[in-house]
Amino acid sequence: MGSVVRNALNSIKEKGITNFFRELRQQGYLNALLDGNLMQTKIHNIGATLVGVDKFGNKYYENLKVQYGRHRWVEYASKTRYNASQVPPEWHGWLHFITDRTGDELLRLKPSRYGAEHRENLTGQGDEYIYHSKGHALNSGQRDWTRYESWQPTKP
């Protein structure tokens, strides 16, 4: 605990008090005061190794000294609205002990040639996020059902 305070004092000295507090907010320490989950994650992070950061900014930690089965975890990039579906598939396996290869290794091993970009589950986030099938009145990419081409007067 003493080292934490010393590190904090050191960084205040380096960056100045404003920058220190801005960084504190960005890294979610202010949210952690009200959010027990985040606070617990932050406390866990002390002494853990940062294994990797995915393309969304989620940080993956590992600490082999804690109880087996609780030794890998993620600190989500979003400090306010986070949920498990924000973990991309390449890190999912590592996080859930399916594989020991980290997401970065998996991407190196098998570059994705096709497939849709990972999106978090936006259920309950509003009408604009709900999936509408082709031809649905609310689908913005409406399919054109016209089966003929009309004559265009501007063409010669």
Binding site: R147, Y148, E149, S150, W151, P153
Partner: peptide
């Protein structure tokens, strides 16, 4: 040809 160059509106 029935599907192309069709006149579909009075002009």
């Amino acid at each position: 040809g029935l599907k192309r160059q069709r006149l579909n509106d009075p002009m």
